[in-house]
Design a protein around this nucleic acid. Structure first.
Lengths: 141, 141
DNA sequence: ATGGCTGCAAACAGTTTGCATGCCC
DNA sequence: GGGCATGCAAACTGTTTGCAGCCAT
C-alpha cells in the first residue's frame, strides 16, 4: 500500500476517530521531552484517564505512527520509545539508565553515496544513535 | 558490586570451559556471514548437536559477548543478531526481510566533537546502521 | 572431584490480538 | 445507529532463569 497519499476529496474511507483516549495520549506524549516507553506513557495517561488499558496505548501509538503524527524510536534497549516531535533530529541514549534525550544539533549528514554497500544491495538510509551518560548517572557512577 | 575490577595476578577465578556446545556455537557463528539471530543459530547448531537447547545458545552467546569474542548487534527489529567478526564495520539491514549484511567500507567517522549534546550529557560514542533493500526483496517487491 | 555447564521447562517482559461492549461521527 | 475504538485478558515472541545432573579441567 502507498505510504504517502494525498488527502482524498470526498471519498469515503475508514476514518480514524479522535477519542478522548487518543487525544490524551497524544497530548501527554507532546507534553514531555522524555521519549517515554509505552508503559511510561500509559502511567502518565492514567493520571487523566484512570481506566485506559496498555493495549489501547499501544494501538493508538501504532495508529499515530502510521499516520506520521508521531515517531517510534527503535533504539537500543528492550523497549521502544515514542517521540512526539517530528522535526528530524538525533538522539542520545544514556548507557546508565537508558533515558533518551534529543541531540539539538542536527547530526551531520552521513553521506550515503560514499558508502559502498554489499553487491546488489540498494542503500536507502541510515539510523544514527548517540550513546552517552546523563547528568544523574554521572554523579552516581 | 564493582563493575570494573583489574585482573588479579594469580588469584583463583571461575574459568570458562570450552564445552562441545560452546565450540560448535562459535564455529557456526564464524562460518556464516548472515548475522544470525539466536534461534537461527540454534537451528544450525542442531545440525551438529541435535539436543542443544535454545537456553544454552543464549547463555553461551552471552558469555562470549562478555569475553569480547563475538559481538551482539542491537539493530532495529525485534530480535538481536550476533556477529562473529570483531573487526569494526557497519551493517545494512534490509527493510523488507530484516536480513543484515556487512558494509565493506568503514562508515566514515562521525565526528562526535562536532555534536552538541544536551546540557550535562557526556557523549561517549554512537551507533550507525544503514537501511536498504537486499537483492531478493528488490525483485519481489 | 569440583563447580561451571547442560537440557528442560517454567518464568519474564514487551507487545499483539480476540471479543463483547462503548461511543464518536 | 454504524462501525471504529475501548477494556480486559489471554496469547505470542524473544529472552532469562531455577534446578538436578553432567562433564571439562
Amino acid at each position: 500500500m502507498s505510504s504517502h497519499e494525498s488527502i482524498a476529496t470526498h471519498e469515503k474511507r475508514a476514518l480514524p476517530r479522535m477519542t478522548r483516549q487518543r487525544r490524551v495520549i497524544l497530548d501527554e506524549l507532546r507534553a514531555t521531552t522524555s521519549h517515554p516507553t509505552a508503559d511510561e506513557l500509559h502511567a502518565r495517561v492514567r493520571g487523566q484517564l484512570p481506566h485506559v488499558s496498555l493495549g489501547t496505548v499501544y494501538r493508538n501509538l501504532d495508529v499515530m505512527v502510521k499516520k506520521g503524527v508521531i515517531r517510534k524510536l527503535e533504539l537500543g534497549g528492550s523497549q521502544c520509545r515514542y517521540d512526539g516531535r517530528m522535526m528530524p533530529h538525533d538522539h542520545v541514549r544514556c548507557v546508565g539508565c537508558g533515558c533518551v534525550a534529543d541531540v539539538p544539533s542536527p547530526g551531520q549528514a552521513v553521506d550515503i553515496s560514499a558508502v559502498q554497500g554489499p553487491p546488489g544491495f540498494r542503500l536507502l538510509g541510515h539510523r544514527l544513535e548517540f550513546l552517552g551518560e546523563c547528568p544523574q548517572c554521572q554523579t552516581c557512577s
